[in-house]
């Protein structure tokens, strides 16, 4: 159950694009057509599935303070966490290269549909972001890390699929010239992000939904006390803190 919760949370609540703005570059560049968007999205899911657990192992057995203890007692004081960035990005670049070669050899049809997108992925922030968030969240075991990786990948896939479809349709609309292309895409993404915020109460059995409305309906004087607590924190953690407090209430 916890795994399912983590899975749904990483897809909808902590969505890579809408909650943390990761992978925006390729999200904007490759979303003009649905077919290409699907190709890149699938490649991202695949690479996330491989790199997040791999980086989890690296973090567990090499990087975090005291991780080298499996080599012997005298290594217990070593802390290599400053190497995190360089090792994670090296893993990702290597894996992308490796995946590209394997797919080319054994699944030429898949390679032809994904081929051009694979090299792009090495510099997709969503991939490195997934690994860095994985490290920050301190998962208990590799299964959780894998589920988180796949969930984040699927979340990103959904986002690029949706914007791809909208951009195909918006071609028939009369957008003001200055907003054509990039401008309207940003505003659309913002509106979609507002929609995704409504998933925030999904995992708390709907307890959150009436509560949020109450917060909005509170007279302005009390609103002041609410906003600093909830919203001063960075965007992605705000949802989390709300959720944490709700689970506490539920447990009591």
């Amino acid at each position: 159950m916890d795994l399912l919760q983590l899975f749904l949370k990483s897809i909808f609540i902590d969505n890579m694009v809408f909650a943390t703005f990761l992978g925006m570059c390729s999200y904007l560049a490759v979303s003009k057509k649905v077919s290409t968007a699907v190709g890149l999205g699938a490649a991202v899911i695949f690479v996330m599935l491989v790199t997040v657990p791999l980086n989890y192992l690296l973090d567990q057995y090499l990087l975090r303070p005291g991780a080298l203890v499996w080599l012997g007692e005298e290594y217990v004081d070593y802390d290599l966490s400053f190497l995190t960035f360089i090792l994670f990005i090296a893993t990702i670049a290597t894996m992308v290269q490796l995946v590209e070669m394997i797919v080319e050899k054994f699944a030429p049809a898949l390679y032809n549909s994904l081929g051009i997108f694979l090299p792009l992925i090495a510099v997709n922030c969503a991939i490195l972001g997934g690994s860095l968030f994985m490290q920050q969240k301190e998962f208990n075991n590799i299964t959780e890390a894998t589920v988180y990786g796949v969930g984040s990948g699927i979340g990103w896939f959904l986002a690029i699929l949706a914007i791809g479809a909208i951009r195909e349709k918006i071609r028939y609309s009369n957008v003001p010239p200055a907003f054509r292309g990039l401008g309207i895409t940003f505003i659309l993404t913002g509106l979609m992000a507002i929609g995704f915020m409504s998933f925030g109460g999904m995992l708390t059995g709907g307890d959150e939904a009436p509560k949020k409305e109450v917060v909005e309906a509170i007279p302005p004087t009390e609103m002041k006390e609410v906003t600093p607590v909830e919203e001063v924190k960075s965007d992605s953690t705000a949802v989390e803190t709300v959720k944490d407090s709700l689970t506490e209430i539920a447990q009591n």
Partner: peptide, 22 residues
Amino acid sequence: GFMLLAPMALITLGLIIGFQRS
């Protein structure tokens, strides 16, 4: 308070782009 949430960053940037292009 809505300005502090994630979606408004995107919308603000969209408006800046529209302003620059106009």
